[in-house]
Computed example of a mutant assay.
Amino acid sequence: MDIARFIDHTLLKPDATEEMIENLCNEAKKYNFYAVCINPYYVKLAKNILRNSNVKIATVIGFPLGANTGKIKALEAEESIKDGADELDMVINIAALKNKDYDKVKEDIEEVVKKAKGNALVKVIIETCLLTEDEKVRACNLSLEAGANFVKTSTGFNGKGATVEDIRLIKSVVGDKMKIKASGGIRDYETAIKMIEAGANRIGASSSVKIVQDSIK
C-alpha cells in the first residue's frame, strides 16, 4: 500500500508562514502526498508551487467553527476555487445540528456543493467529538442528501480527533455512496492503517512525513 496517496498533508495553524507553506508543498511533492490542506489565504501560493506536480490543493471553508452562514461559506468556496483549490473541506453548522434545524444544516452544505460542482470535491467536516452518535448519523445523512463527496471526522481544533469507532459508524451510514476522511490526532503509520482498514479513503495529518517514514522501516 502506498500510504502517501491516502494523505492530505496538512498545515492549518493560524500562525503558519509562507516559508512553512512552501516547505509543506515541497514535502508533498517529495513524498507524493495526495494533497496539501491549507487555509484559503495560501491557496494561490500553493497553486504556484505545485503547478507542475500531481498534488491536489485542499482548503477549508467555515473553518474551524462552522458558525458562519451558508452564503458566506459559498462565497469562500467560490473564491477558493478561483484561486486554485481542488477540494473544499467545509465545517457543518454544528449549532444548527444541535438545534435540530436539519434543513439549515443541509442548505449550508448545498450552498457549497453548488459552487463546487464540476470544479472541486466537497468534504463535510462533522466534528465528531462534539456530537452524539445519533447526531453523527444525522450529519452523515444530511451530507449525503446535500450531494457532498466526503464525510470528514474533525477539524483537529476542538479536542478529540478521528477514532476507529467513528470511521466504522460513518462507513455503516454512507457505505460506498460517499468517501471518508479521517483527521485529527493521526500521528503514526499504525493509526493511519487502522483508519483505512475501518473505511477511511483519505487521512488528514500534519505528521505525514513521519507516517510515510514509519511505513518503510
Rank of each mutant, 00 (worst) to 15 (best):
E165M: 07
L144Q: 14
G161W: 00
I193S: 09
T163I: 03
N149Q: 15
V151S: 06
V212W: 00
G185S: 00
R168V: 14
K194P: 05
S183F: 04
F150G: 04
L142Q: 09
G184W: 01
Y189K: 13
G147W: 03
K210V: 09
L142N: 07
V209S: 09
R187M: 00
A146H: 13
E165N: 13
A198Y: 09
K194R: 13
E197T: 13
R168G: 15
T191K: 15
G204N: 03
F150Y: 13
K179L: 15
K160P: 15
A198R: 14
E190K: 13
K152Q: 02
A205S: 09
S154C: 07
K177R: 14
G175V: 10
S183R: 06
V174C: 06
G147Y: 01
R187I: 00
E190I: 12
D188Q: 11
M178W: 04
V209Q: 04
L142I: 10
N201A: 14
M178E: 05
S208V: 06
N158V: 12
L142W: 00
S206A: 10
S207F: 06
D166M: 14
V174Q: 11
D176R: 13
G204D: 01
M195L: 12
K177P: 08
N201I: 09
F157H: 06
V164K: 15
I211H: 02
I180K: 02
G161K: 08
V173D: 09
E145V: 11
T155M: 08
A162Y: 01
T153M: 11
K177F: 08
G199F: 11
N158C: 13
K177I: 13
I211S: 05
A162Q: 03
F157R: 12
L144V: 05
T163P: 02
S154L: 02
I170C: 07
V173L: 11
R168T: 11
Q213D: 15
K181R: 10
T155W: 10
L144M: 15
G147F: 08
D176N: 15
E165C: 07
S154Y: 01
K152S: 01
